[in-house]
Structure formats: C-alpha cells, structure tokens
C-alpha cells in the first residue's frame, strides 16, 4: 500500500493500516542501521531540513541520522528564539527554505499547530517533530515499534501513561496511536495534570497510581517538569514523587513481563525511582535505535510521491 499523506502532522489523522504500514516499513530500516555501511541511496539528491525552534538533541539527531542513512542531505537550523522574538515570521522562514529546495521540513516548535501552518504554506513535506502540547507523532511511533518488538503485538495490551498528561504531546500521540491499534490506554497522574476530559479521547483517567498500574503490560513514564510547581499545578515535586513515582514496589503491581518506557531525559528520583530507571535503560537504548528506523521509514514513505521520470526494469 502507499502512503497518501503529504505531511505527517499527527497520529490523530492516520488510519490503523497506515500506522501499521509505517511500523512495518521501519523494520527493514532497522537492519540498515545495524550493518556496517549504514547508508542506502534511496533519497539521494533530496534535502531534509530540520527546523528546530526548541532545543532538542535527541530528536534532532535522530532525524538527521535518518536522513543521512537514507542518502538525503540534511541541514539543521536550530533557533532557541521564537519567530516573534527573532523578527522573521515562520511563514517567511518556511518560504525561504522551500526556495532553497527543501523536500522535507522537519519542525519542532513550542506553538501547537505550527507544523499545520507550515504544511498549508509549503509544497515540501512537513514532519511534526513535536509542536507545543499537541502531538509528537514520531515519538509515539517509536514507542509503538518498541512495544510491538517486545510484546509481539499492540492489540489488547494494557498501556499506562504516567505523569503530566495535560502538557504532554508524547501522551497525546501515544493515546491516538495506541487506541487506534487496539490497546487499552490508561492515563494516570494528579487531577490538575490529568483532567477527566481525557476520557473523550478514549482512555481511562485514573488518579490513583496503584489502580492504574495493576496488570499493565506497558508503562510509559513521562518527564515531570519543574515549572509545574511554580505554575501552581503541583504543591511540590516531593509530593508528586511520593504519590506517583514509579518505584520497584509499585512496579510489581504490573504484569510480570511489564515493559517500562520513558521518552527521556529522565528525572531519576522524581517520576522514576533510580532502580527502575536502570532497568528501563536497556529499553531506552532500543527506543533510540527505533526512533531512527521510524524516521527513516517516514522519510521513505513521504518521499515516495512522483515528480520526476524514470524507467523501470
């Protein structure tokens, strides 16, 4: 099957078959990463621009490697300042990049919907590498690839997402992706960070961590940010840790072969107990490799549309 979208802006718009297709395509990509010559000529002559308005080493490097492994030329534009501060509008920046011949623009931006704005105004394919508190589709895809590898399936699994769901784009993309693929998703955290309205996205909303962890096949632990306390959403990180940290004692409530994921970087001792974090570390390494594979698959699928001519043997 083909991939009919010009852009990848979120998982909400994707069909289950399309998600499966991306994950299936990522599997052979992973082999390429693991071999000695980590390069194929597929996207030779194509240009991938990483436009990052937020600091991110992990995601940016992952996209950069994915582009290079696929044979594309990748360029990074990192700017810590928003377009408003910088004086050049996002629209002007985008048009400049397109004039320079960008085929794919990968964007990370603090404003939700910025990739949609770009996609409407560019012919180039746009990949959302995280927008505000909206979506981070490639992170969810790599999480799902990792889960599928370890568990052999997604359907029927109980996946608990633990932490600041309200401000998490990773959570939203995981919720859309996992529910589409037939998993049962629970979200857990304090009511100020996990409002009941999340039920309308098809998940169970739980405030008691023990209840949320019971029988879970997968636990995805989200990073808790210092500023939530300052904003009055949490009395203290200490209290949060006491109530919600994933500790070895709590982990035994989950399924015996539970898989623990963390999008990183981890706050050891806050959202995750060091002992659990070290157990998680192996899966995190796996997540990083899968991240590159998923992004290679996306570049391949998004660049498959036709512009030039050629013969076929």
């Amino acid at each position: 099957m083909g991939f009919k979208h010009k852009d990848l802006l979120g998982l909400e718009q994707l069909q289950p078959d399309e998600i499966r297709h991306i994950l299936d395509t990522a599997v052979p990509m992973k082999d390429i990463i693991c071999r000695e010559i980590k390069k194929v000529p597929t996207l030779r002559g194509r240009t991938v621009i990483n436009l990052f308005y937020e600091a991110s080493t992990r995601t940016r490097t992952s996209f950069e490697l994915a582009g290079k492994y696929m044979g594309a030329d990748t360029i990074n534009i990192a700017t810590a300042t928003s377009s408003v501060v910088k004086g050049e509008s996002l629209l002007d920046t985008a048009r400049t990049l397109e004039a320079m011949g960008a085929d794919v623009v990968v964007i990370r931006h603090q404003a939700s919907g910025a990739p949609h704005f770009l996609a409407r105004n560019l012919n180039a394919a746009v990949i959302n590498a995280g927008d505000g508190t909206h979506e981070h589709p490639t992170q969810a895809l790599l999480d799902m690839l990792t889960i599928r590898e370890k568990k052999g399936r997604l359907e029927g699994l109980v996946v608990t997402i633990l932490g600041d769901i309200l401000h998490s784009r990773v959570a939203r993309s995981n919720i859309w992706g996992l529910t589409k693929m037939g998993a049962e998703v629970r979200v857990v955290g304090p009511a100020t960070l996990v409002p009941g309205i999340f039920r309308q996205m098809g998940v169970r909303v739980i405030h008691r961590v023990e209840e949320a962890l019971a029988g879970a096949d997968v636990i995805n632990v989200l990073r808790i940010q210092q500023e939530r306390q300052a904003k009055g959403l949490l009395p203290s990180l200490r209290e949060y840790a006491r109530m919600y940290a994933l500790t070895p004692e709590r982990l035994v409530l989950a399924a015996p072969d539970v898989l623990v994921l963390h999008p990183g970087p981890m706050n050891r001792g806050i959202e995750i107990h060091p002992a659990v974090a070290d157990g998680v570390a192996s899966a995190i390494t796996e997540q990083v490799t899968n991240g590159v594979a998923v992004r290679m698959a996306l570049l391949y699928l998004l660049m498959g549309g036709g512009q030039s001519h050629g013969t076929t043997d």
Binding site: S82, S83, S89, A111, S112, G113, A114, F117, G132
Partner: peptide, 9 residues
C-alpha cells in the same frame, strides 16, 4: 501578516 502566524501568536 498578523493573522498569518502560529496560532498562539
């Protein structure tokens, strides 16, 4: 130009 911007801005 004011409206052709990120939603937040």
């Amino acid at each position: 130009a004011e409206k052709a911007m990120e939603f937040d801005y």
